[in-house]
């Protein structure tokens, strides 16, 4: 991306704030590193769906973007998605799951997720999807 403006730069001197919801510390680390390389600010992480809902509410309205895993203990990512959208219909949520089943992808998008990325993740995959999410919703 060279000298271009980093993707996390809102253009007004501030940076997009992200909440990462994933039960794997490996995934949280990988997603954080990719986002931080583009100046996104990771302002919270959660290890299951319930913690994700609680964190979103606690941090609202500061969260600009949520990355959300699906297969998690206690409360899964689809339920978490429904609850966050119920609370804030404008939430920008990007699903990141190892499962790419068509019915699940459809359900997530119909419920209000802005995009759905199938793991394994890589830098280009994440950044190109976020770019389109951020340009479509601003």
């Amino acid at each position: 991306m060279g000298d271009e403006i980093p993707l996390g730069d809102k253009g007004d001197g501030t940076f997009y704030k992200v909440l990462i919801i994933d039960d794997s510390v490996f995934m949280i680390k990988q997603i954080s590193q990719i986002l931080q390389s583009q100046k996104f600010e990771v302002i919270g992480t959660a290890a299951d769906g319930q913690e994700g809902i609680d964190k979103y509410k606690e941090l609202h309205p500061k969260v600009d973007l949520v990355t959300l895993d699906i297969t998690m203990p206690n409360v899964d990512g689809i339920t978490c998605l429904e609850k966050i959208i119920e609370f804030d219909k404008n939430a920008k949520i990007v699903m990141m799951s190892a499962l790419g089943k068509e019915d699940l992808v459809k359900k997530a998008l119909l419920t209000g997720a802005k995009s759905y990325i199938v793991k394994p993740l890589d830098r280009d995959k994440i950044l190109s999807r976020l770019k389109s999410v951020l340009s479509n919703t601003n």
Partner: peptide, 20 residues
């Protein structure tokens, strides 16, 4: 967590294929 996630990713892709 890394090895666990590897197992999750492999299984997830296989289950996706089986669902197709």
């Amino acid at each position: 967590a890394t090895i666990t996630e590897l197992g999750n990713m492999i299984t997830g892709r296989a289950v996706t294929k089986l669902s197709e």
